[in-house]
Amino acid sequence: MVPIIIFGLSALITLGAALAVVTNKNILHSAFYLVLAFAGVASLYVLLEAPFIAVVQVLIYIGAIAILIVFAIMLTRRIGSDDLIQRNAQWIWAAMGAAGLFLVLGWIVYSVNWPVVTQIVPEDTITILGQELLSTYVIPFEVASVLLLAALVGSIIIGRERE
């Protein structure tokens, strides 16, 4: 019973906060709701017995991405003020499209009989994860490091002040 309550709460927080992110008039409030949504997702990961992913979610999404976003909002301050309309003209179509997508996707994933297996999660997932990352997935791992370097250099080039 307890997991279901926790699941329900996390799902509610996640989806509620996500709705607030996309509808709030103040973009900075959206950013803080985004943090809440990320935290909700992290608790879903804990329920799914993936504590490592949960902690990484907090570390990267809240500790890095959300803070970067808040910073960017502060640097482009004029946009943050409340009097600007944050919604574009075709929002109603967007809402209908998103709702339609949810109905289709939700109906499909909910009605499908997934071939669930009953294996249990190994005790120490992190060790296995590390070994897999450096054996099977070593090439993507290395490419990811190149990607991070490229992003780092690129954002410095682009974000640097004019000379």
Binding site: P140, V146, A150, A151, R160, R162
Partner: peptide, 21 residues
């Protein structure tokens, strides 16, 4: 692998496109 290579191509393309800042 597809995803990471795809993103590498995308991200370097974004940077190249905005290169003359």
């Amino acid at each position: 692998m597809i995803f990471i290579a795809f993103e590498l191509l995308s991200i370097s393309s974004y940077i190249l496109t905005g290169f003359l800042r």
